[in-house]
């Protein structure tokens, strides 16, 4: 990871997931997302950033074909969602609130569910399936918990189980809905390291998060969402104070240390801290234009 990833090459690569003009309207007439378009690229991690209710989950559901789109299209490696699902190309890590943690399933049962798409209709696991489950549990360091009921796990462990399920599924496109909520810092680092490795292996990863501080740490690209896409592109280019203000409006806490408090000379750079109660985002430069040097280093 010492070598900087080669950005120009990435640009040349054709997008792996194309979302074009997608709108979702629920039965009660509520328009969740409107005309959403963006691309995801092979070997990159993209952050999906927006306030609660900005349509992040709806977008995920539309990308999986789980809720019908009223307009627009989603293509995954040139396939329609239906074709991509049939080839097991898509994995999804749900939000913790969507799961009934009292449900009588063990850790290994959940990870084995990742293999269901590969099995015939009786869902009898073969050696390859058991092996995939073992590997996945090993990668998230959860082998010793495999016989636990999922409700007995801590927040971080729960997340790792569902991550292991996505790993066992061996999909090329992985969608994660708020993987860092209710997770300790150690697990967060572990998940980030794992996602980076998956990206290096050529996976396409989309992570929704409102944990702004960690985005520059591991996300190559960003999509800022509020019902529709406000900005999309390389993290350095779009993840700035101005765009985040647009995406979050008054929801974010914002502290600015202005240039004259920081410097005695005419240096116009100021320090901006953006936070929504989770780890804060620190920007430095004129009008909070740059990511802090240390965070950029971290990303490389």
């Amino acid at each position: 990871m010492n070598q900087p990833r080669q950005q120009p090459q990435k640009q040349a690569v054709q997008s792996a997931v194309k979302v074009r003009g997608v709108s979702v309207v629920y039965n009660n007439g509520h328009k969740a997302i409107d005309n959403v378009s963006f691309d995801l690229y092979r070997g990159t991690i993209t952050a999906l950033v927006g306030v609660n209710g900005s349509g992040k989950s709806s977008l995920f559901k539309a990308m999986m074909g789980f809720v019908p789109r009223v307009s627009g299209s989603v293509h995954i490696h040139q396939l329609t969602v239906k074709q991509a699902l049939r080839q097991n190309m898509l994995a999804y890590v749900p939000q913790s609130e969507e799961i009934d943690w009292d449900f009588p399933v063990l850790v290994e049962d959940v990870v084995m569910m990742g293999r269901y798409g590969h099995m015939s209709f009786l869902r009898r696991p073969k050696d390859a399936d058991h092996q995939a489950v073992n590997e996945a549990l090993q990668r998230v360091d959860m082998q010793s918990f495999r016989h636990r009921q999922i409700g007995e796990l801590s927040g971080g462990q729960r997340k790792r189980v569902f991550l292991a399920r996505a790993l066992a599924q061996k999909s090329r496109v992985i969608l994660l809905d708020e993987p860092f909520t209710g997770v300790d810092v150690g697990t967060e680092d572990q998940i980030i390291a794992l996602l980076k490795r998956l990206a290096e292996d050529g996976c396409v990863i989309l992570v929704s998060t409102h944990n702004l501080g960690s985005v520059p740490q591991f996300c190559d690209r960003c999509v800022l969402l509020n019902r529709t896409v406000l900005a999309e592109g390389e993290t350095e280019a779009v993840f700035n104070s101005e765009n985040l203000q647009k995406a979050f409006g008054g929801v974010l806490r914002r502290f600015v240390l202005s240039a004259d408090t920081l410097h005695t000379d005419a240096d116009p750079r100021e320090l901006t801290v953006l936070s929504d109660d989770e780890s804060p985002l620190v920007l430095y430069g004129e009008k909070g234009s740059q990511l802090l040097a240390s965070q950029q280093d971290n990303q490389r």
Partner: peptide, 11 residues
Amino acid sequence: FFDHQHAWIAG
């Protein structure tokens, strides 16, 4: 019953 979205993904 456990996770209908993953069921959908698994076909």
